[in-house]
Protein backbone atom coordinates (compact mmCIF):
# COMPACT_ATOMS: atom_id res chain seq x y z
CA UNK A 1 0.00 0.00 0.00
CA UNK A 2 2.61 2.47 1.16
CA UNK A 3 5.10 1.43 -1.54
CA UNK A 4 2.68 2.62 -4.18
CA UNK A 5 1.96 5.83 -2.35
CA UNK A 6 5.43 6.75 -1.10
CA UNK A 7 6.33 8.92 -4.06
CA UNK A 8 3.53 11.25 -3.09
CA UNK A 9 4.80 11.81 0.43
CA UNK A 10 6.99 14.76 1.22
CA UNK A 11 9.85 14.33 3.70
CA UNK A 12 7.82 16.10 6.35
CA UNK A 13 4.85 13.79 5.82
CA UNK A 14 7.12 10.77 6.11
CA UNK A 15 8.55 12.03 9.42
CA UNK A 16 5.01 12.61 10.68
CA UNK A 17 4.13 9.02 9.76
CA UNK A 18 7.26 7.72 11.43
CA UNK A 19 6.45 9.73 14.54
CA UNK A 20 3.16 7.84 14.61
CA UNK A 21 5.05 4.53 14.53
CA UNK A 22 5.22 3.70 10.81
CA UNK A 23 8.70 2.23 10.38
CA UNK A 24 8.32 1.98 6.59
CA UNK A 25 8.32 5.77 6.52
CA UNK A 26 11.67 5.71 8.31
CA UNK A 27 13.11 3.28 5.76
CA UNK A 28 11.93 5.53 2.95
CA UNK A 29 13.65 8.52 4.55
CA UNK A 30 16.85 6.47 4.87
CA UNK A 31 16.69 5.62 1.17
CA UNK A 32 16.16 9.27 0.26
CA UNK A 33 18.91 10.71 2.40
CA UNK A 34 21.72 8.17 2.87
CA UNK A 35 23.64 9.13 -0.30
CA UNK A 36 22.92 12.86 -0.08
CA UNK A 37 24.26 12.88 3.47
CA UNK A 38 27.25 10.76 2.46
CA UNK A 39 28.12 13.18 -0.33
CA UNK A 40 28.17 16.07 2.13
CA UNK A 41 30.01 14.26 4.93
CA UNK A 42 32.55 12.69 2.55
CA UNK A 43 33.55 16.09 1.14
CA UNK A 44 33.84 17.36 4.70
CA UNK A 45 35.91 14.47 6.15
CA UNK A 46 37.60 13.11 3.03
CA UNK A 47 37.37 9.58 4.40
CA UNK A 48 34.82 7.12 3.04
CA UNK A 49 34.76 4.77 6.03
CA UNK A 50 34.37 7.52 8.63
CA UNK A 51 31.81 9.31 6.47
CA UNK A 52 29.62 6.22 6.20
CA UNK A 53 29.82 5.83 9.98
CA UNK A 54 28.75 9.44 10.47
CA UNK A 55 25.79 8.92 8.11
CA UNK A 56 24.83 5.80 10.08
CA UNK A 57 25.00 7.80 13.30
CA UNK A 58 22.90 10.56 11.75
CA UNK A 59 20.20 8.12 10.66
CA UNK A 60 20.31 6.39 14.05
CA UNK A 61 19.72 9.78 15.60
CA UNK A 62 16.76 10.23 13.28
CA UNK A 63 15.38 6.91 14.55
CA UNK A 64 15.81 7.72 18.23
CA UNK A 65 15.03 11.45 18.13
CA UNK A 66 12.40 11.78 15.41
CA UNK A 67 9.92 12.90 18.10
CA UNK A 68 12.04 16.04 18.53
CA UNK A 69 11.46 17.17 14.95
CA UNK A 70 8.88 19.93 14.60
CA UNK A 71 7.57 20.98 11.23
CA UNK A 72 8.72 24.56 11.67
CA UNK A 73 11.87 23.65 9.72
CA UNK A 74 12.30 21.64 6.56
CA UNK A 75 13.24 18.04 7.29
CA UNK A 76 16.32 18.30 5.04
CA UNK A 77 17.57 21.25 7.08
CA UNK A 78 17.04 19.34 10.31
CA UNK A 79 18.83 16.18 9.16
CA UNK A 80 21.73 18.14 7.62
CA UNK A 81 22.14 20.03 10.91
CA UNK A 82 22.52 16.71 12.73
CA UNK A 83 24.95 15.41 10.10
CA UNK A 84 26.99 18.63 10.16
CA UNK A 85 27.34 18.51 13.94
CA UNK A 86 28.35 14.85 13.95
CA UNK A 87 30.78 15.42 11.07
CA UNK A 88 32.41 18.31 12.96
CA UNK A 89 32.89 16.14 16.05
CA UNK A 90 34.32 13.35 13.90
CA UNK A 91 36.72 15.73 12.16
CA UNK A 92 37.99 16.97 15.54
CA UNK A 93 38.48 13.35 16.61
CA UNK A 94 40.28 12.48 13.36
CA UNK A 95 42.56 15.52 13.65
CA UNK A 96 43.53 14.50 17.17
CA UNK A 97 44.20 10.96 15.95
CA UNK A 98 46.25 12.19 12.99
CA UNK A 99 48.38 14.32 15.31
CA UNK A 100 49.05 11.24 17.43
CA UNK A 101 49.72 9.00 14.42
CA UNK A 102 52.32 11.37 12.98
CA UNK A 103 54.49 10.34 15.89
CA UNK A 104 53.63 6.66 15.80
CA UNK A 105 53.15 5.80 12.10
CA UNK A 106 55.77 4.09 10.00
CA UNK A 107 56.22 4.86 6.33
CA UNK A 108 54.21 1.83 5.23
CA UNK A 109 51.14 2.61 7.35
CA UNK A 110 48.16 4.07 5.63
CA UNK A 111 44.45 4.34 6.41
CA UNK A 112 42.25 1.55 5.10
CA UNK A 113 39.62 2.83 2.72
CA UNK A 114 36.86 1.01 0.88
CA UNK A 115 35.33 3.39 -1.62
CA UNK A 116 32.00 2.37 -3.06
CA UNK A 117 31.57 1.08 -6.59
CA UNK A 118 31.66 3.63 -9.42
CA UNK A 119 33.35 6.12 -7.15
CA UNK A 120 36.85 7.06 -8.15
CA UNK A 121 38.44 9.96 -6.26
CA UNK A 122 41.21 10.12 -8.89
CA UNK A 123 38.73 10.78 -11.65
CA UNK A 124 39.13 14.13 -13.40
CA UNK A 125 36.15 16.43 -13.40
CA UNK A 126 34.91 18.15 -16.51
CA UNK A 127 37.15 21.18 -15.92
CA UNK A 128 40.90 21.65 -15.58
CA UNK A 129 40.58 20.91 -11.89
CA UNK A 130 41.06 17.31 -10.79
CA UNK A 131 38.91 16.01 -7.96
CA UNK A 132 41.93 15.19 -5.87
CA UNK A 133 43.19 18.76 -6.16
CA UNK A 134 39.80 20.19 -5.31
CA UNK A 135 39.43 17.89 -2.30
CA UNK A 136 42.89 18.84 -1.09
CA UNK A 137 41.98 22.51 -1.34
CA UNK A 138 38.64 21.94 0.47
CA UNK A 139 40.49 20.13 3.27
CA UNK A 140 42.77 23.12 3.69
CA UNK A 141 39.93 25.64 3.98
CA UNK A 142 39.16 26.95 7.47
CA UNK A 143 36.05 25.23 8.84
CA UNK A 144 33.79 28.28 8.59
CA UNK A 145 34.36 28.44 4.82
CA UNK A 146 34.59 24.73 4.24
CA UNK A 147 31.09 23.94 5.54
CA UNK A 148 29.35 26.68 3.54
CA UNK A 149 31.26 25.83 0.36
CA UNK A 150 30.28 22.15 0.57
CA UNK A 151 26.66 22.91 1.42
CA UNK A 152 26.39 25.46 -1.37
CA UNK A 153 28.59 24.16 -4.18
CA UNK A 154 28.51 20.40 -3.66
CA UNK A 155 25.13 19.98 -2.03
CA UNK A 156 23.60 22.93 -3.87
CA UNK A 157 21.47 24.12 -0.96
CA UNK A 158 19.94 27.59 -0.89
CA UNK A 159 21.37 30.43 1.20
CA UNK A 160 18.34 30.19 3.45
CA UNK A 161 18.79 26.46 4.07
CA UNK A 162 22.47 26.95 4.86
CA UNK A 163 21.60 29.78 7.19
CA UNK A 164 19.18 27.49 9.07
CA UNK A 165 21.57 24.54 9.20
CA UNK A 166 24.44 26.59 10.58
CA UNK A 167 22.34 28.98 12.66
CA UNK A 168 23.85 32.09 11.09
CA UNK A 169 22.31 34.98 9.16
CA UNK A 170 21.85 34.89 5.39
CA UNK A 171 24.21 37.89 5.12
CA UNK A 172 26.93 35.93 6.92
CA UNK A 173 26.31 32.91 4.69
CA UNK A 174 26.69 35.05 1.54
CA UNK A 175 29.83 36.69 2.82
CA UNK A 176 31.39 33.35 3.83
CA UNK A 177 30.53 31.77 0.49
CA UNK A 178 32.15 34.62 -1.41
CA UNK A 179 35.28 34.59 0.73
CA UNK A 180 35.37 30.79 0.67
CA UNK A 181 35.23 30.68 -3.12
CA UNK A 182 38.07 33.22 -3.42
CA UNK A 183 40.16 31.27 -0.92
CA UNK A 184 39.49 28.01 -2.72
CA UNK A 185 40.46 29.58 -6.02
CA UNK A 186 43.72 30.85 -4.54
CA UNK A 187 44.49 27.49 -2.92
CA UNK A 188 43.98 25.69 -6.21
CA UNK A 189 46.23 28.14 -8.01
CA UNK A 190 48.92 27.54 -5.41
CA UNK A 191 48.47 23.78 -5.82
CA UNK A 192 48.90 24.10 -9.58
CA UNK A 193 52.09 26.10 -9.13
CA UNK A 194 53.56 23.39 -6.89
Amino acid sequence: MMDKEKIKFTDEELVARFQQGDERAYIELVKRYKDRLLNFVYRYLNSFEQSEDVVQDTLMKLYTSAHMYREIAKFSTWIFTIAANLAKSELRRLKRRRVVSIHTMGYDDSEYEIPSEDFDPEKETTSNYGEKQIQEAIDTLPDQFKTVIILREVQQLSYEEISQILGISIGTVKSRINRGRLRLQKLLKDLKVR
Partner: peptide, 30 residues
Amino acid sequence: ADMSQLLGALRTLPRPVTRPDFESRLMARI
Protein backbone atom coordinates in the same frame (compact mmCIF):
# COMPACT_ATOMS: atom_id res chain seq x y z
CA ALA B 1 36.38 33.00 -15.86
CA ASP B 2 38.45 30.81 -13.57
CA MET B 3 35.91 31.09 -10.74
CA SER B 4 33.05 30.08 -13.04
CA GLN B 5 35.02 27.04 -14.10
CA LEU B 6 35.83 26.13 -10.50
CA LEU B 7 32.17 26.32 -9.46
CA GLY B 8 31.26 24.11 -12.40
CA ALA B 9 33.90 21.61 -11.31
CA LEU B 10 32.58 21.60 -7.73
CA ARG B 11 29.08 20.85 -8.94
CA THR B 12 30.19 17.92 -11.06
CA LEU B 13 32.38 16.22 -8.48
CA PRO B 14 31.75 12.45 -8.36
CA ARG B 15 29.18 11.53 -5.76
CA PRO B 16 30.04 8.65 -3.46
CA VAL B 17 27.28 6.19 -2.66
CA THR B 18 26.77 4.08 0.42
CA ARG B 19 27.75 0.41 0.25
CA PRO B 20 25.00 -2.08 -0.62
CA ASP B 21 24.76 -3.42 2.94
CA PHE B 22 24.38 0.06 4.44
CA GLU B 23 20.67 -0.32 5.21
CA SER B 24 20.97 -3.83 6.63
CA ARG B 25 23.79 -2.67 8.92
CA LEU B 26 21.70 0.28 10.05
CA MET B 27 18.64 -1.87 10.74
CA ALA B 28 20.82 -4.35 12.68
CA ARG B 29 22.08 -1.47 14.83
CA ILE B 30 18.51 -0.35 15.46
